[in-house]
Design a protein around this nucleic acid. Structure first.
Lengths: 136, 136
DNA sequence: GATTATCCTATTAAATCTATAGGGTAATAG
DNA sequence: CTATTACCCTATAGATTTAATAGGATAATC
């Protein structure tokens, strides 16, 4: 399952991408429009700012805004930040590789063999989509 | 993340597929060979029996065995039974469709748009693999 | 009839996810 | 300069899911 964190994060990014002239939008405004708990959204936006997707402005007229153009925001990067590793098992992860403690040898593991294919096909979709591509 | 349940289930199925003449194997034997908690594995095998993947035999010389040939066991079916819906969000699920309560319209949802692609590519992998294909 | 091994329900323990609380900090307007 | 606005940040609580364990019932075999 996709976490609410990722879901809300994607919705917020899309919402911001649709603003004219990339004007800052307040947390409260996004939360209301997208039916998201405001405080929860706040922490998600904070993460997205710290990881270089969003900029913020304090005080009246402030809010969050995209730092890059939608076509330059890769889903691969967004998903890794919000959802974590793209692979379903650590032993096939490119960026978060880890050996399974119960598995003596990856080369003779059927789970590894199947999940490697899933990772590749999933990665292909994320690599083929930017924020601009998923706007509707 | 892939659940341990699915991981163990796949390993058990693979293990059984490699037995000569499809002889029954005891839970304890599989658990030991694959480093799985025996009681936990027990409940997984029970599920796989109830869903038509395995047969069982009680008493001495008993155990679990495959009911169909590995090449006739589709990963799509195995994954749905062990891991649940293949889609990452209910609103793009073929077999477990559900509308999101927070989303007014799927047609204008960027999460839906992205996850639809993920579902399709994931499904393609599972449909292209039988138990026989992931044996090593 | 003793032994073996699956069958089944209930419960607990651990981990993760989701959301909330509450105050701090910086920018802006007037 | 001061009140207001809105983001900043940490901690924590509640809910859900996952993983594992306990303990005995049932059925088949030797």
């Amino acid at each position: 399952m996709l976490s609410k964190k990722t879901k809300y994060g994607l919705k917020a990014l899309s919402f911001l991408a649709l603003q004219k002239e990339n004007a800052p939008v307040q947390i409260a405004e996004i939360a209301k429009q997208e039916n998201i708990s405001q405080k929860f959204l706040e922490s998600i936006l904070l993460t997205l700012r710290k990881t270089g997707f969003l900029g913020s402005k304090k005080g009246k007229g402030g809010g969050y805004y995209l730092i890059k153009e939608p076509k330059d925001i890769l889903m691969t990067d967004v998903m890794r930040v919000l959802e974590g590793p793209i692979a379903m098992v650590p032993c096939v992860s490119l960026n978060f590789y880890e050996k399974c403690d119960d598995c003596p040898d990856e080369k003779t593991c059927s789970v590894n063999k199947l999940m490697l294919q899933i990772r590749d096909s999933t990665l292909q979709v994320y690599r083929n989509n930017t924020l601009a591509d998923i706007l509707v």
